[in-house]
């Protein structure tokens, strides 16, 4: 589904990603961990087409398409979704209008008719239930005045609406209280199918207790320096990153 080959990217002349290689197949769940500043969010931004970052080298294929060639909106329409680490507020753009516009653009891309108002509202209700998000929130402007946790929930709500093939969740667990974490994780699990995949960026094991990864990768200084099964996360939780850094120095 996703194939990243030797990806290098920079911001302000500073090289952040320094040769990333990663393969994700349908049905898989990948966790990416790594110290602060190692480039996890940068990887997510580059995959989704944030023009702030410059790709220096490498290739990314998504279901056979050259992802790096596509503008952000087409990547989304192809089925790539990013749950932002820091979702921004957009006063004046209503959640409802935002979601209807997004959904209909996806449909247009697939050659489908726009959803009728009633069908849209029905879908909205269903998905709201899935992530137990309050109508008070969806009636507001995008993320405006949302708490940190509410913003994260709202990201997963949008994911539920758009049903991506590949969801990249950038620290979706941070800022969530214990109940919200469970709700959000349940939501992600319910959306999980044999033909879609998830990349979870996280610092903590607790999310992985709910959403069990098939692979865990450690990103360090712009490279994936270690990949293993879910047990790696437990080991990191216990020992931190020092031993990996040491391993690398040897």
């Amino acid at each position: 589904m996703l194939e990243i080959k030797n990806l290098h990217a920079s911001i302000d002349e500073k090289e952040i990603l320094r040769g990333i290689n990663l393969k994700v197949k349908p049905g898989e769940i990948h966790a990416i961990m790594g110290p602060n500043g190692s480039g996890k969010s940068t990887l997510a931004s580059v995959l989704t087409g944030n023009e702030k970052f410059k790709v220096l080298e490498g290739e990314v294929f998504f279901n056979g398409k050259d992802l790096l060639e596509l503008p952000p909106e087409d990547r989304a329409r192809e089925g790539v979704f990013l749950s932002f680490q820091y979702p921004i507020e957009i006063p004046g753009v209503s959640m409802v209008n935002f979601m209807r516009t997004a959904l209909n653009e996806h449909r247009k891309y697939r050659g489908e008719e726009p959803l009728s108002a009633s069908a849209f509202l029905k879908l909205l209700r269903e998905k709201k239930k899935l992530v137990e998000i309050d109508s008070k929130l969806t009636n507001r402007s995008v993320n405006e005045g949302f708490s940190g946790g509410e913003k994260k929930k709202n990201e997963i709500f949008q994911m539920a609406m758009l049903e991506p093939k590949l969801a990249i969740l950038d620290e979706t667990d941070s800022g969530l209280d214990i109940d919200a974490l469970r709700i959000v994780a349940n939501g992600v699990n319910k959306l999980k199918r044999a033909d879609n995949a998830v990349i979870m960026i996280t610092h903590y094991q607790r999310l992985l207790d709910y959403i069990v990864p098939d692979f865990v990768h450690v990103l360090y200084q712009g490279r994936i320096v270690k990949s293993a099964g879910k047990e790696l996360a437990l080991e990191l939780e216990e020992k931190g990153y020092d031993w990996i850094k040491k391993e690398l120095e040897e």
């Binding site: 944030n50 023009e51 952000p72 909106e73 932002f84 957009i90 006063p91 004046g92 935002f98 653009e105």
Partner: peptide
């Protein structure tokens, strides 16, 4: 940032501009 957020949800650049100007 707002432009990217909207586009990352599949909304075209042009439509995102309209949404933001309108907002």
């Amino acid at each position: 940032e707002a432009m990217f957020y909207l586009r990352s949800r599949g909304i075209s650049e042009e439509e995102s501009r309209v949404l933001l100007m309108y907002a």
